[in-house]
Design a protein around this nucleic acid. Structure first.
Lengths: 346, 346
DNA sequence: TTGTAGGCGTTATCAA
DNA sequence: TTGATAACGCCTACAA
């Protein structure tokens, strides 16, 4: 039989009713077979299941959602899919949801709170039972909407003592401070930071504050920190690095807000013939695969993306089911020391 | 007002009926206001829109789908989100769909045809109006199901003369052959291929065949090609490369099925102190960002992922709308020559 | 254990 | 231009 076979098969999907007729039972029985098989006698159950198979029946989602008032669909809104860290976490999130019969609706906000608010409304309108969100920064209206509709949600990719919302992640401030403590211990005093835009991005902001905190703890003037703000991309990392190194106050350590920016910095260093870490040290954040590939290897903070995705899924399912739960989970993000960080040149 | 405010607001979403009552019109009028505003008098339209705003009304997706028999939701099933090439293409796909008011449902098959078939059924059951699929390889039942339900779909990430299905992509065979022609022109005769498992993955298979074709065209025995099959990952690429280089017949050129495997090979070469391209040349496929970061730069095939995603979205929307359309689009994938490929050592 | 029947929130057809 | 009203396909009391 050809794949393009055009016999006059039903042009419309089989319904519960069709199955019921074929199996000579009521629609209620068919419905029960599918949802609570134990309530149905074995004989009928087999007849029904055969009919289901024969017709290739699959429940109509809209009708199901309408009648049951639950869709078994969760939504996730991430800043962008085009970043390994979200992609990886999301993949794990999805795998775990799949294991629980939940399907995933994904949208991306392009790092815009207004767009994110639209996406939240859209996903809820489409019947998302629960939402995964990234970071705490969003419009007040977004939160008001979620509360009003009583939509379970969890905030991921960050853990912040000060926030009481259900969340799973690591403490960006603490992690970055730990990395910076190490950098300062190596004697660096002229520091530069290449960060993503901090407005509307609490992860970026907290990392920045972690850097400041470490400097203050060492008695350094935080105002001496050179800052370049630029969206995450290799290109931008490279350009920012070039600017810093050709500026008046050449740093001995360039701290990057994530590995993508750091990778850009590393390649530019190589292109400019600047020795890393001899002349300048470079650090990243995330520990994506690129960090191992560049040479020297990139010193960075290892973030457990897959764990975070999986944990978020479990948390969200518990919340949706109304199960009491420890709804704030802090994960560890450890330093990953590699060759790109060395002692300050004397 | 606190975010955790718990006043007794409606615990259930407002419906068309609520809006109708508030605006003192019928539900039909409200529905028309939302879908065909031009049919409603200006006065009523304003009254209705005010009520909509006041109540924060958003249509119930299930009910809409049930009544309108169309969901404005497309589905995409990709092998894995955890690979930059799919993530990037999907991001573009989603952006374009969003521009047309279509939302995206994403599932991943983990490279398993059986799992993919399940996902196809699940997405269709959830009301996907159309589907994006990767590659032509899938179960006969999958295709039968799609034809029977008359679900529009497009096959992406590949273009194959021999297939008549709607598709958008590039010719993997041709692209890999072109790369290999170049490799052979540089004098390489001892070739090894590190490829992803070819069963159920036509892209991998066609790339492999492209390698063979180039060898044959040069009068080389295709059987002399050393082949290592391993799933895409840096780790696996590194291990495969190590095996090849410590084996009895050390190749002078290692062709990798994609950049991820190639990146693994490159790092392992560096670790083993093997000079690239002095002792061995390495090539990749895809041209992801990593290709520019490794040193020397990775010679690879540039794949227009974002174009492909955007084009797939347009194609699919046309198909869904029943617009006649050129439904097979071939994109170009060009060689990207960088330092990792050099002349064969003499 | 099984069947009947009402209702979920929209859309769309028909009259008015 | 508007308003009743009948689908749409499923779930779930409630009855039998």
């Amino acid at each position: 039989m050809s794949e393009h076979d055009q016999t006059n098969r039903p042009r419309t999907s089989p319904t519960l009713n069709d199955v019921a007729k074929l199996a000579k039972v009521s629609t209620a029985t068919v419905s029960r077979c599918l949802n609570n098989p134990s309530q149905v006698s074995k004989a009928k159950r087999e007849r029904v299941m055969n009919a289901v198979r024969e017709l290739g029946y699959a429940p109509n989602f809209g009708a199901q959602a309408l009648a049951a008032k639950r869709t078994n669909t969760f939504g996730a809104i991430i800043p962008t899919m085009d970043n390994a860290i979200f992609a990886r976490g999301l993949q794990a999130f999805q795998e775990e949801l799949g294991r629980h019969g939940v399907t995933l609706l994904v949208a991306s906000s392009s790092y815009s709170p207004e767009l994110e608010e639209e996406q939240i409304r859209a996903l809820v309108a489409r019947g998302a039972d629960a939402l995964l969100l990234i970071g705490h920064d969003r419009t007040a209206d977004s939160y008001a909407f979620l509360e009003q509709r009583r939509i379970p949600y969890v905030v991921a990719w960050t853990f912040n003592e000060a926030q009481s919302r259900p969340s799973i992640g690591f403490d960006n401030h603490k992690a970055m401070k730990r990395l910076m403590d190490h950098v300062l211990r190596l004697g660096h005093r002229d520091i530069a930071l290449i960060t993503a835009p901090r407005v509307g991005n609490d992860r970026a902001r907290e990392r920045f504050e972690g850097v400041q905190a470490a400097m203050q703890a060492q008695g350094l003037d935080p105002a001496s920190l050179q800052i370049v703000e630029t969206p995450y991309s290799i290109q931008n990392g490279a350009m920012a690095f070039e600017g810093l190194m050709s500026g008046p106050a050449r740093p001995t350590a360039v701290i990057c807000g994530n590995d993508v920016l750091a990778a850009g910095a590393m390649t530019m260093a190589q292109k400019l013939g600047i020795d890393v870490p001899g002349e300048v040290s470079i650090t990243g954040f995330d520990d994506i695969e690129v960090a191992e590939i560049v040479s020297p290897g990139l010193t960075t903070v290892h973030v457990p993306h897959r764990n975070m995705g999986r944990g978020a899924a479990r948390l969200l399912i518990e919340l949706r089911n109304g199960e009491v739960t420890q709804s704030r989970v802090e994960l560890q993000a450890d330093l990953k020391l590699r060759g790109s960080l060395g002692a300050a040149p004397s």
